[in-house]
Write a protein that binds this DNA or RNA. Structure first.
Lengths: 200, 200
DNA sequence: TATAATTTCTAACAGCGTTAGCAAATGTAG
DNA sequence: CTACATTTGCTAACGCTGTTAGAAATTATA
C-alpha cells in the first residue's frame, strides 16, 4: 500500500511550495515584509498549515540560510577547481565569494546581517563549517607550498573571510552607484596584500 | 513670559526620557524587542505621546545611530591625537574602532547590521561623513609623508573601513569564547599588511 | 458501515506601529 | 473671574504580525 508514500510525497510538495512561495515573496518585497500569512495566501492554504512543516518562521529563514551557504560553497568549489596553483585558487575564491554576494543579495543579507543571527543560529548551520574548510585548506596549501610555518592558517582564514565580508557589507549599505570599478580595485588591493602577506 | 520656554523645556525633557527609556530597554532586551508601547509604559505616558516627539519608531532608531557615530567619532579623535606620527595614528584609530564596537555592541549593531539601513538612512547621517573624514585625512597624511602618489586614498579608506567592519561583524556572530587573543592577532595581522601596503 | 486518525480550517490571543477623535488641562483675552 | 482657544494626553481602533486551541471535515482502517 503506497498510501503512506503518497502522503509523504504530498507533504513534501506542500513544504516545497511553502519555500518557493516564500522565496518569490522575498524577491518581490524583501525579507522584512515576509509573513506567514502571505505565504499561506500564496500557496492557497490557511496559515496554521505552515506550522505542520516548519516549527516557526525562523525555521523557514534557517532553511534559506542553509541553502545560501550550500550555493555559496558550490560556487567557491567551482572557482577553486579551475586552478591548481593555490594562490590563483584563493584569488578565484575571493572573486566567486564577491560575485555570489551581489548576485544573491537576498541570500547574503539573510546569511549574515539581518538581525545578527547570534550563537544559537550559527551552530545550526553545518554548511558554515564546510564553507570555512574550503578556504582553510587553500590557505594551508599556500603556506605549505611557500614553506611558511610562521603564519597561522586560522588567523589568515579569519582575516580573509572578515575582509571579504566587510568589503561586501559596507558596499551593500551604500547606494547602487556604478562604484563597480572602485569595488574591483578595493578587492584587488586587498588580495595583493593578503597573498603577499601569506607567502611570508 | 517664560511660559513658552518652560513648555519647550518640558517637551525636551519628555523627549529625553523617551530616549533614555528606549536605551534602557535595548540594553536589557535588545533591539528586536524594543517597542513603542514598552517605551510608553516606561515613561508613564500613553503610546501616541511618543509620536509628538518622533515621527515614527525608525526616527528613534536613527537618533541612536547618530549618537553612535558621534561617540565613535569622539573615540577615534581621542585616539588619533595621542600621536603625531600618522602610522601610529591609523593604528590607534583601528584599535579605538575595535574597542568601541565591542564596548558598545548595541550601538554598533544598530549602526550597521540590523535590517541593513539602506541608502535613505545613510544620507540622513552626516556623522558618517565626519567619521570617514577622520580616517581619510590620516591616510592622506601617511601617503604624503611617504611620498606615495600611486595609492588612491579613497581606495585605502574603503579597504581600511571594510576590513575593520568585517573583522568585527564576523566576530560578533561567533560566540563569546575567549577568542580575544585571536582577535588581537587578526587585527594586528591586518594592520601590518595595511600600513606596509600604504607606504608603497 | 462505523470507528479511528489525519488534515485543514476558523477563531482567537497577544503583541506590534500608527492614527482618529474626544476629553481634560492649560493658556489667553475681555 | 469668566469665556474662548489652544495645546496635551488619552482611549479606542485599524490593520498588521507570529502562533495556538479546538472544532469540523476529510480520509484511512477494521
Amino acid at each position: 500500500m503506497g498510501i503512506a508514500e503518497r502522503k509523504l510525497r504530498q507533504k513534501g510538495e506542500v513544504k516545497a511550495s511553502i519555500l518557493q512561495a516564500a522565496w518569490e515573496l522575498v524577491q518581490r518585497e524583501g525579507w522584512q515584509s515576509l509573513s506567514i500569512r502571505k505565504i499561506a495566501d500564496a500557496i492557497e492554504y490557511s496559515a496554521p498549515v505552515i506550522y505542520d512543516h516548519f516549527a516557526n518562521k525562523e525555521a523557514i529563514m534557517l532553511e534559506f540560510t542553509k541553502r545560501g551557504f550550500q550555493q555559496l560553497n558550490e560556487q567557491l568549489i567551482k572557482a577553486k577547481v579551475q586552478f591548481t596553483n593555490p594562490e590563483q585558487q584563493i584569488e578565484a575564491i575571493a572573486y566567486a565569494y564577491w560575485k555570489f554576494a551581489f548576485d544573491n543579495k537576498e541570500y547574503y543579507q539573510l546569511m549574515y546581517g539581518l538581525g545578527m543571527p547570534g550563537c544559537e543560529t550559527v551552530k545550526q548551520i553545518p554548511e558554515m563549517a564546510s564553507f570555512a574548510e574550503i578556504i582553510f585548506s587553500t590557505i594551508k596549501e599556500i603556506l605549505a607550498k611557500n614553506k611558511n610555518t610562521s603564519a597561522d592558517p586560522h588567523l589568515k582564514l579569519n582575516t580573509f573571510w572578515s575582509t571579504l565580508h566587510g568589503l561586501i557589507s559596507i558596499n551593500m549599505l551604500g547606494k547602487n552607484e556604478s562604484r563597480d570599478e572602485l569595488n574591483a580595485m578595493v578587492l584587488k588591493d586587498f588580495l595583493i596584500g593578503f597573498i603577499s602577506g601569506i607567502k611570508g
